[in-house]
Design a protein around this nucleic acid. Structure first.
Length: 674
DNA sequence: AGGAAGGTAAACATGA
DNA sequence: TTCATGTTTACCTTCC
């Protein structure tokens, strides 16, 4: 049975059922890998093209390459001089894989690293050395290729070139290469000393191979792109990547270059559901600023070609400039290759990060103490007990009121339990059925408002009961009514968790709708819609009064709704004000929905309800549904509910309660009390 | 230990 | 017939 449900989930999810088809690809990471492969292949193609499409004469080419080599060497020496060892020696533990830097930090951090934080980690000055190493490697290879090309060209073309001249040049070039090799080795040793590289004997000749995950710091790329230019430029300036705008096509993938334009490096590559878009995202990111009359390499009146910045008045001029200055030549090709390498590195890193994200999310689906084997993160077994025990205490509002859940990296943010909430957050090893918000203080609307993005992206089961979720879904709508399918859609829209196991939770939703009296089915012209009877909902579950269960019980059984309502407020005053004051409460969606609700549910008990007689729908919450409300009518209970006159002097918000009070009232329901 | 609440599964009915 | 919707029951787990 479970298997069937799971398979159904798998089938139904991509089918777009209930309008969630757009989410179907969220967990499919294969595309990224495929694209990555494509990128690699393209890179090789480009390399080949560079070799075969050279238009410069060998002498020019050699000169050009030498200039580049010198420039790179200069930068390298600068890096050496400025000291790659940056502030934290602890960084020396960031070994071979620079990716491990965010890994360790992220894992140790109580909160997930934001892309900005990752950026800070990935692009500190010490990483410049890595980049220089890559640059050296790149240009070293290129020099070799060009040298080989030169030789081939000369042999085939049979150009009558003085052997001596060529020999001298080759000699000088080879010396240069030798120098570069030495620099490479020196650089490698330097990196090794600092722990940036774990040197392996067979890789000593190629730093790049030792840095497969090295985070290419694009801030250094301009140095490469500008390598042949401004030879007299002070080295310091070359490090500053001054004025470089990397927001063009090439740099959008690495747009975390210049500080003012700092943007999360991964955010551009991560869909809201957390899936990397890899290459497509590069296109997207480059095209996002593309307008019908623009060009991805043209923006803000200047050429966005890496290291160019040539001012162009209009697009036409730019096109002309592009065709003249950035035609297909070795230089452009080399720049492309550099850029591709950057992209490749980022893709590798992205793949690593995505993998880590999956592992983290999978981990979060298991309780830490859960000895069960690692379950399939992307397709949890529906109905399994382990699945039910997912409850990461995401309901716990973060004390700082921040929305910790990420907006870009698909919420690896672990909803870590705020220390201050103590056991309430744990709710005792909480299986999902003990939704924290149901029994404790976190209001669902507040919680959802605060962690909306998190639940939207992270495959974490929301710590709310189905009933509270359904209620929230209904209350969020202006009309306070939803069809079943709309409720489904709300679930899938709001919670990544509910984008799978559709058969399970949909059944649960229907079950809850039918089971709980607080959900009223209203026959509409179009069909049936579901509304919420707040009174029933609040009556449904008693507030968990701290320290006095008996009191609660007495209240439930003996007091009228008004008294209960008063107790709600008392409890609220004690426990929930901080939460209610949280920014989440000001969420427009929830707030807008709260006001009328308060009017409805709070006012109802005090109003002379029986005006409609006992036959009237007792749980007719929304006034607009004065028409036929049917189903699930419990006249007896309704009569009970209608015992007017809150004896305990319940504040009657329906009379003249300020909106704030109404909001508070709305948040009063038992589930939101502690 | 037992009840309450909630989650899950399933059977069944109904209507489009 | 199939599917969505709705109802109901049963069983389970967890908490109190």
């Amino acid at each position: 049975m479970m298997v069937e449900s799971a398979s159904e989930t798998i089938r139904s999810a991509p089918s777009g059922q209930n309008g969630v088809g757009s989410l179907s690809g969220q967990t499919d990471g294969s595309s990224g890998g495929a694209k990555g492969t494509t990128a690699s292949g393209t890179g090789r193609d480009m390399t080949t093209g560079a070799d075969s499409n050279g238009e410069m004469s060998p002498a020019e080419l050699l000169h050009f390459q030498q200039q580049q080599a010198l420039q790179v060497a200069r930068q390298f020496l600068l890096q050496q001089a400025s000291g790659l060892s940056s502030p934290g020696n602890n960084d020396s533990k960031q070994s071979a894989s620079a990716v491990q830097v965010p890994v360790s930090v992220a894992m140790m951090s109580p909160q997930m690293l934001t892309p900005q934080q990752m950026q800070q980690i990935l692009s500190p000055p010490q990483l410049a050395g890595v980049v220089v190493g890559i640059a050296l490697q790149e240009y070293y290879k290129k020099q070799q290729e060009q040298l080989h090309l030169q030789l081939l060209t000369q042999q085939q073309a049979g150009k009558p070139q003085p052997k001596e001249a060529l020999g001298n040049k080759q000699l000088a070039f080879q010396q240069q290469l030798l120098q570069m090799q030495q620099l490479q080795q020196q650089h490698l040793l330097n990196l090794q000393r600092q722990g940036l590289v774990s040197l392996q004997p067979n890789q000593a000749s190629g730093p790049l191979q030792t840095l497969p995950q090295a985070a290419v710091c694009p801030t250094d790329l301009p140095q490469l792109w500008k390598g042949e230019g401004a030879p007299g430029q002070p080295a310091e300036d070359s490090v500053k990547q001054e004025g470089l705008d990397l927001t063009g096509t090439a740099a959008t993938a690495t747009s975390f270059a210049a500080p003012p334009k700092v943007s999360p490096p991964l955010s551009h590559h991560t869909l809201p559901n957390g899936q990397p878009t890899v290459l497509t995202s590069r296109r997207d990111s480059s095209s996002h600023e593309e307008t019908p009359g623009s060009h991805p390499l043209y923006g803000h009146g200047e050429c966005k070609w890496p290291g160019c910045e040539t001012l162009c008045e209009d697009l036409g001029q730019f096109i002309k400039h592009l065709n003249t200055e950035h035609a297909l030549d070795d230089r452009s090709t080399a720049q492309c290759r550099v850029q591709m390498q950057v992209v490749q590195q980022l893709e590798i890193q992205l793949a690593k990060e995505s993998e880590r994200l999956q592992a983290m999310m999978a981990h979060l689906h298991m309780r830490p103490s859960e000895p069960k084997p690692f379950s399939q993160p992307l397709n949890p077994v529906p109905g399994s007990s382990s699945f039910s025990k997912v409850t990461v205490s995401a309901a716990d509002s973060f004390p700082d009121g921040l929305v910790h859940p990420p907006t870009s990296a698909a919420a690896p943010v672990t909803p870590l339990r705020p220390p201050g909430l103590g056991s309430a957050s744990l709710h005792g090893g909480g299986p999902a059925r003990r939704r924290s918000s149901d029994k404790f203080c976190s209001p669902i609307s507040s919680e959802l408002a605060q962690n909306h993005e998190f639940y939207k992206n992270a495959d974490v089961r929301p710590p709310f009961t189905y009933a509270s979720l359904i209620r929230q879904a209904i209350l969020e709508t202006p009309d306070r009514q939803l069809t079943l399918n709309e409720i489904y859609n709300w679930f899938t829209r709001m919670f990544a968790y509910f984008r799978r196991n559709t058969a399970t939770w949909k059944n649960a939703v229907r079950h809850n709708l039918s089971l709980h009296k607080c959900f009223v089915r209203v026959e509409n012209v179009k069909g049936a819609v579901w509304t919420v009877d707040e009174r029933e909902y609040q009556k449904r579950r008693p507030p968990k009064m701290t320290g006095s269960p008996t009191l609660v019980k007495n209240m439930i059984s003996g007091l009228s709704y008004g008294a209960l309502n008063a107790s709600y407020q008392a409890a609220l005053a004690e426990s929930s004000f901080p939460l209610l004051n949280s920014p989440g409460m000001l969420n427009p969606g929830s707030a807008s929905s709260l006001l009328p609700l308060s009017h409805d549910d709070v006012g109802a008990p005090v109003e002379p309800l029986p005006s409609n007689g006992s036959s009237s729908p007792p749980r007719l919450s929304p006034p607009q549904y004065s028409h036929q409300v049917q189903v699930k009518e419990e006249p007896a209970e309704a009569e009970e509910d209608r015992q007017p006159g809150p004896p305990l002097g319940t504040p009657n918000p329906s009379a003249s309660g300020p909106p704030e009070d109404r909001d508070l009232e709305e948040e009063l329901p038992g589930e939101e009390l502690s």
